[in-house]
Amino acid sequence: MPQEKTTAERVEQEQIAGRSFQSMNFVQSILEEDEQFERKNQDFVHFSLIHNNTFVTVTDARGNKKTGASAGCLEEIKGGSRLSRYAAEATAEHVGRSARKMGMKSVVMKVKGSTYFRKKKAVILSWREGYTFSECKRSEGVGQPSNIMYIHDVTQLPHNGCRLPRKRRK
C-alpha cells in the first residue's frame, strides 16, 4: 500500500517535471480579485412580503444595511392597510428613491414571500420606477438601461409538507 505524499514532496516532483504551482496560483488570485471587485459594486435589495407587512431593505455585498423601510413607517399608510398592494408599492418606491440618492450602480433583487406573483411584480416595478424617477426627464426614463442585474425569488417552499397525524384506532 503506497504512502500518501506530503505537499512539499508533490511540489518538488512537479518542479522536477517542469510544471510549477506558482503560475496556477497567480491565475487563481487574479480571478478572485475580479470576483471581489464585481461583488463590491453590487448591492442587494431584499423584499420581504409577509402576510401583514412589507419590508424593503438595501444592503451592500457584505450584508451591511444601507437603507430600508417598512409599510408601517410611511406616513401615507395608516392602520390595517399595511398588507395591501398599494402599501407594498409605496414602500418599494420610497426605498428606490432613497437608493437613487445614494448613487447605486447595479442591484441584485431578492424577493421573499408567499404572496401572489402579481404583488411581487408590482413591488419590483415600483422600486424601479422610484429609482429611475426624474422630475425633469420623465419621458427619457423609458429608454434607460436597467440597473437590475437579476431577480432571485428566495421564498422557502415546503418539500413534502408536514407529517400527517397518526390514524385513529378503531
Rank of each mutant, 00 (worst) to 15 (best):
T67D: 03
A71H: 02
E75I: 12
Y86Q: 08
Y86L: 14
S114V: 06
K78S: 14
W127L: 06
L49C: 04
D43S: 12
F47R: 02
V58I: 11
T91F: 00
E89T: 06
E129Y: 09
L74H: 01
A99P: 02
L83E: 06
E75C: 06
G80S: 15
L74V: 03
F47M: 01
H94I: 05
N64F: 11
S48A: 10
K105F: 05
F55Y: 14
S48D: 08
L83K: 12
Q42Y: 11
G79W: 02
K101R: 14
N52T: 15
Y116P: 00
Q42R: 15
V123Y: 01
G103C: 00
M109I: 15
R62D: 15
R85G: 12
I124M: 12
R128E: 11
A99F: 04
S126K: 04
Y116I: 13
V58N: 04
D43N: 14
V123G: 00
A122C: 03
E89D: 03
H46P: 05
G80E: 10
S84Q: 09
K110G: 00
S70R: 09
G113N: 03
S114I: 12
A61C: 12
L125D: 13
T59I: 05
K110D: 07
A69F: 04
K78P: 04
S126Q: 07
E129L: 07
Y86F: 09
G80Q: 10
V107M: 13
H51L: 14
R100W: 10
R118Q: 09
V123M: 09
M102W: 12
L49N: 02
K121I: 10
G96S: 05
S81Q: 10
K65Y: 07
V107K: 14
R97D: 01
V58R: 03
L83A: 11
M109F: 15
M104H: 13
T67I: 14
A90N: 06
C73M: 10
K101F: 03
T59A: 07
T91C: 04
E93N: 11
N64A: 07
T57K: 12
A92W: 04
F55E: 09
V108S: 10
T91L: 00
R62V: 08
L49V: 13
V45E: 01
G80C: 13
Q42D: 10
I77L: 01
G103F: 03
V56Y: 04
M102D: 06
G72D: 03
S114L: 11
E93L: 07
E75N: 13
V58F: 09
M109L: 14
V111P: 02
K65E: 14
E129D: 12
K120P: 01
A90Q: 12
D60Q: 04
V58T: 05
R62P: 02
R100G: 05
K119W: 05
K101N: 05
